[in-house]
């Protein structure tokens, strides 16, 4: 009986010691892994970001990046928008290539048409600007590329183009500034005047604010608007 008691006690102590040492060792091992980070490599998780569409080619992004940096969308500069000369310098590409960059935005954007020599938005223009602004999805920047037809002098057309771009910006600000305080950092204006990147008649097939009233002259009395789904 005594022998049985001794054997039982010995086995019990052995079991207790073995299990306690095993558990203790495992905890220390886990603590070491925690301290040294010696664990299985964690899968990299993407960080939420703006959309990146397939049309965001390196060339397209290069131009846009130059524009947003030079035109005050990044860095908090007070400058707003780029003048035609700036754009031409920044883009460093010819007119056709510059226009071609925006072709993928044909369905995403719209062309706002203006009266001759005017910058006032009509009701259809207002409606389409509001609609397009609300179709933001994952885009980071909203571009307004204003133009003027070749009618009139260069200085007049530059000023007119600038006013047209501002008309779009003011409408957006009036309507959406309260709900989107970062509009100044999101909307980029380019006013091209009449000397650079004039649109051909084929652009009359784009989404126009005045469908059916498009001529080679009219298509350049315009402002092209679109969100750009690129991470710039």
């Amino acid at each position: 009986m005594k022998a049985a008691g001794l054997v039982g006690s010995a086995v019990g102590c052995a079991i207790l010691a073995a299990s306690a040492i095993t558990v203790h060792g495992q905890v220390r091992s886990a603590a070491d892994r925690l301290r040294t980070g010696a664990t299985a490599e964690k899968p990299k998780v993407a960080v939420a970001n703006d959309a990146e569409a397939s049309y965001c080619t390196p060339a397209f992004k290069e131009v846009l990046t130059r524009v947003i940096h030079a035109c005050g969308l990044v860095g908090g500069e007070s400058r707003r928008g780029c003048q035609p000369a700036d754009v031409k310098t920044l883009a460093s590409i010819n007119d056709e290539d510059f226009n071609a960059l925006f072709h993928p935005l044909k369905s995403r954007g719209a062309v706002i048409l203006f009266d001759d020599g005017a910058e006032k938005l009509d009701d259809q223009a207002r409606q389409i600007i509001e609609e397009k602004w609300l179709e933001r999805r994952g885009a980071r920047y909203f571009f307004v590329v204003a133009r003027a037809s070749k009618t009139g002098g260069a200085d007049f057309n530059r000023a007119l183009s600038h006013k047209r771009a501002n008309s779009v910006l003011f409408l957006i600000s009036d309507k959406f500034k309260a709900s989107n305080p970062d509009i100044d950092k999101e909307a980029g204006l380019l006013w091209l005047g009449s000397e650079y990147a004039q649109l051909g008649k084929e652009y009359c097939e784009w989404n126009l604010s005045r469908p059916g009233k498009c001529t080679p002259e009219a298509i350049n009395r315009s402002a092209f608007i679109s969100w750009v789904d690129c991470q710039l």
């Binding site: 009986m1 102590c13 079991i15 299990s19």
Partner: peptide
């Protein structure tokens, strides 16, 4: 973890009973 200790004890105690038989 509590069960580890408890079952370990019962294992040793059962072994004692098994060896002691009716003398327990």
């Amino acid at each position: 973890l509590f069960a580890v200790g408890a079952f370990g004890f019962f294992a040793a105690f059962s072994l004692y009973l098994l060896l002691a038989g009716d003398k327990a």
